[in-house]
Design a protein around this nucleic acid. Structure first.
Lengths: 219, 219
DNA sequence: GTTACATTCAATAAATCTCTTGAATCATTA
DNA sequence: TAATGATTCAAGAGATTTATTGAATGTAAC
C-alpha cells in the first residue's frame, strides 16, 4: 500500500532536499550560482578531494539541481535553472526566521539591529538613477568580471583595507556579494561602518539580481 | 581553518534541508500545513509508529520547521511559519522543472498536456466574482471545516464518484486540495474530465491561499 | 493515589551517507 | 602512439540516520 503516485512524489522531493542537505554541496551551489565551474575549481573552494567533489556533484545532478557539459579536458558544471536560486533563498528565509543560531551569526557582525536591514533591488535601482550611491561588489575579481551590477566598483573583501581610499566617505555605499548566504558583504559592511562610512547590504546577491531580469555588465 | 561564520551558516542551512530530506517528514509537513495535528494523527497519516513519528517531529523542530505546544494530554504540532510553505513550494518547483520522474508522474493523470496548467489564485478570484465557476475542495471533511476557500463546496475525493450529481455539468469547476504536491486534485480533475466536466486545478492549495492573505471561511 | 493514555527517552540493529584510495575513462598534447 | 591531465568509477572504513522495542515522563480521569 506504500507506492502510489503520492509516495513517489514525496520521494522525489525528498531526493532534492537531501541533495541540499550538506554544507559542502551548499557551498558548491553558491559558487555555481556565480557561473560555470570545473570540478577542480569547486573542489578547491569547498576544501574537498577531487573524487569526493565529483561524487557530490553527481548527487546534485541526480537531484536536478545542476547540469554539466564537457569542454575539452574539463567538465563544466552549472546550476540547472533559476528555480534553484529560489529554493536556496527559501531555505535561507526559513533558517533566518526560525533558527536562533542563524540570527546570532548574522547579528554577530553588527551592534545595532537596524543595520541588518538590506536594501531592496528596486530601491537600489532608484538610488543609482539619482546617482547618489556607490555600489560595491566585494567578490573576487574573476567573479566580478564574469558579471556585475552596472556601475559597481569591485574591491574584493580581502583588499578592502588597503584600497579603502578608493571609496568616497560622503556617498552612501551599498555592498553585495554572492547571494543571500554570502557573508562577504556582511564583513564589508561591518568593516566600513567601523571606519565611519554609511553602508548597507543589497538584498541577496548578483545571481538573484540577474534572475530578476535586471541588467548585468560584463568586464 | 574550517569553522568560520560562513561554514556555520552552511551548516545551519544544511540542517534545514536535511530535515526536509525524508518522504515521511514531507508528508507530515503537508498535513501540518492544513492545521495543528497531534503526534498520533501525524503518525497514522504517514504510516509510522508513534515513537518514530515523534523523533521525526523533533528533527523538524530542531530545524525550525515546526513548533509545538502541549494541550492536555496531547502535544499539538504546527508549521513554524509561512516561510515553510515557501520552501516547500520552491522544492516542488525545482523538482518539477528538472526531474523527469516528477513530470512523468504528473502527466500520468492526463492525456493532453495543456490540461495540466493550473488556475492562478488571482484568476480564480476574478471568476468567482463573476459567479461563473464552481470551486471544489476535495480534501477530507475535517480539513475543509478547519478552513476553506469561501464559497467552495466540499466533496472528498473518495466520495466523488457517489456525489457527482451535486456538480453542475454546465459550469466550469476549479479543484484544489492541500498544496503544490497534493495529488488529490489531480485525481479529481482526471476523474471529472473523464465524465465530461470542464475542470482545472487551482495553483497550490489552501495553505498557500491563506498565506497569500486571501479570505478563508470556517466550518 | 491509582489508572489510563499520549508522548518522549534510550538503546539497538539495519540501512544509508561520506570520505579516502587507487584504478579506469576520456580528451588533449607531444 | 604514447603521455598527460581532468574526471569518473569502484570498493571499503567510519560516521550518521532510520525504525523498532521497551521503559520513563507528564497529564487527565477515576
Amino acid at each position: 500500500m506504500s507506492t502510489g503516485p503520492k509516495q513517489a512524489l514525496y520521494g522525489e522531493f525528498a531526493l532534492v532536499a537531501r541533495a541540499l542537505g550538506s554544507p559542502h554541496r551548499l557551498e558548491m551551489l553558491e559558487h555555481l550560482a556565480q557561473g560555470e565551474r570545473s570540478v577542480e575549481a569547486l573542489a578547491e573552494r569547498a576544501g574537498l578531494g577531487i573524487a569526493n567533489a565529483s561524487q557530490h556533484l553527481q548527487q546534485l545532478k541526480r537531484a536536478g539541481l545542476v547540469g554539466s557539459r564537457r569542454e575539452g579536458k574539463y567538465v563544466r558544471y552549472r546550476l540547472a535553472d533559476d528555480s534553484v536560486l529560489d529554493v536556496m533563498a527559501a531555505l535561507s528565509e526559513v533558517a533566518s526566521h526560525n533558527l536562533a543560531e542563524v540570527a546570532l551569526i548574522r547579528q554577530g557582525y553588527f551592534d545595532v539591529r537596524d543595520e541588518l536591514e538590506p536594501v531592496s533591488r528596486d530601491e537600489l535601482r532608484h538610488r543609482m538613477r539619482d546617482g547618489v550611491v556607490t555600489v560595491l561588489d566585494v567578490r573576487p575579481q574573476d567573479e566580478f568580471e564574469a558579471g556585475h551590477v552596472p556601475g559597481a566598483i569591485n574591491i574584493p573583501l580581502k583588499d578592502l583595507e588597503n584600497r579603502i581610499a578608493e571609496l568616497s566617505p560622503e556617498q552612501e555605499i551599498v555592498a553585495y556579494c554572492r547571494g543571500p548566504w554570502c557573508v562577504l558583504s556582511f564583513e564589508a559592511v561591518a568593516e566600513l561602518r567601523a571606519r565611519g562610512f554609511t553602508v548597507r547590504r543589497l538584498q541577496d546577491g548578483l545571481p538573484e539580481w540577474r534572475a530578476a531580469g535586471l541588467p548585468v555588465a560584463h568586464a
